[in-house]
Simulated scan of single mutants.
Amino acid sequence: MGTPADSEKARSRLEEAAREVFAEHGYQGATVREICRRAGQNPSSINYHFGTKEDLYRKILRQVGPPEDAPPVALIEEASPRQRLRAFIAYFLAETLGGEEQPWKARVMAHEFAAPTPLLDELVQGAIRPHFEMLHATVAELLGVAGDRTAPIDQLVTDHAFGVVSQVVFYRHSRPVVERVARRRYGATDMERLADHIARAVLAAIAADRRRVAACTRQRRAEAEEVAG
């Protein structure tokens, strides 16, 4: 009978092997047999240590996604909306470009996006949505429409929030092409520069829409006053 230390080593080997296999084949293509073979464990070990293949994948997927606690800097209440936006972008870039030593994460997510499993809903609800809601609220403040959840305004805020995300995600999913076109590697040393660049572009777009929204609001008020008068 193994010791607790032996059990922990076996569990660690299984997790490491699972990362490799899920990164190569995705959830559907990965097999318990192959994970156990690479880990040097018998086929029943996943059931013993994790429960099921799905339970093991859930654990790996949680390691891939953002942590369920929000970015500390972005939660500082006294920070301005601009500071919170910049902090969010920097945090997200760090998650994207700072994980060069763990390329398996991007491959696992690529498989998950191509063939979503039911566990993607758990990841979105537990980790991704809270971050997005924080970003959404920050963008709403910058647009001057905080608290306005009417459909057109909410969609505008959502579009800008996804615009932030898309500019960062681009460097993760298009990185091989980006580096070949730019003829240089992108990594942790680029994060501050890219965070500033993305923040400037986003703030300029938001400022333009803020002026447009304000003008429309003034026009609606004037029309309402004219009708009332």
Rank of each mutant, 00 (worst) to 15 (best):
V164S: 00
A39I: 09
G187Y: 00
H131F: 09
D6Y: 02
K53S: 02
H197D: 12
I89C: 01
E192W: 06
S45H: 06
P116N: 14
P43A: 05
H160L: 03
E78S: 15
I89H: 01
R11Y: 06
R172H: 04
L75D: 06
S166K: 05
Q219E: 14
R33K: 00
P176I: 06
E141Q: 13
K9Y: 01
R62C: 14
E20N: 08
G126I: 10
N47P: 15
S44Y: 15
Q155I: 10
T150M: 00
L203P: 04
E122S: 00
N42K: 00
R13Y: 03
S80Q: 13
F132L: 02
R218D: 15
L194V: 07
G29M: 04
L119I: 12
I89R: 03
V164A: 01
R185N: 00
P4A: 03
V169N: 03
P81L: 01
V124Y: 14
E100S: 08
S12P: 11
F132D: 01
R175Y: 05
E112S: 04
E20P: 10
F22N: 00
T52F: 01
R180D: 15
L93R: 07
A188Q: 14
E8N: 10
S44D: 15
A17C: 01
P116E: 12
E179V: 13
A140R: 05
E133Q: 08
L61F: 13
T150Q: 11
G2L: 08
T3K: 05
F22A: 00
V202Q: 11
E226T: 13
R37F: 05
E24K: 12
R11S: 12
M191I: 15
H49P: 03
A140T: 08
A208G: 13
Q102C: 09
R193H: 13
G29T: 10
E95F: 12
P81S: 01
M109K: 11
R210A: 11
E34W: 02
T189D: 11
C216K: 01
L203W: 04
A224K: 02
Q155E: 07
Q83H: 09
L119D: 15
A208P: 10
A222Q: 14
L123P: 03
E15W: 06
E15M: 12
S80G: 12
A201G: 07
E8V: 14
A10L: 11
E133D: 10
G98Y: 00
V164L: 02
D55H: 14
V21T: 06
T158R: 05
R193Y: 13
V124W: 13
S166W: 07
E34G: 01
E101Q: 10
A17E: 06
I89A: 00
A151P: 14
R183E: 15
D209R: 05
L135V: 03
A114T: 06
Q125A: 02
R11A: 12
E179C: 07
I153K: 00
R193F: 14
Q28A: 07
R84Q: 06
A18D: 08
F162S: 09
A94H: 09
T189V: 13
Q155R: 08
L61E: 14
V178M: 13
H160T: 07
T31H: 03
A224W: 02
E226G: 12
H131Q: 13
F92I: 07
E16Q: 15
S7Q: 09
Q219A: 12
A201R: 03
R62G: 15
K105V: 13
F113V: 10
E225C: 03
K105Y: 06
A30E: 04
F22K: 01
A17Q: 05
R13Q: 07
D6Q: 02
L93M: 09
I198E: 04
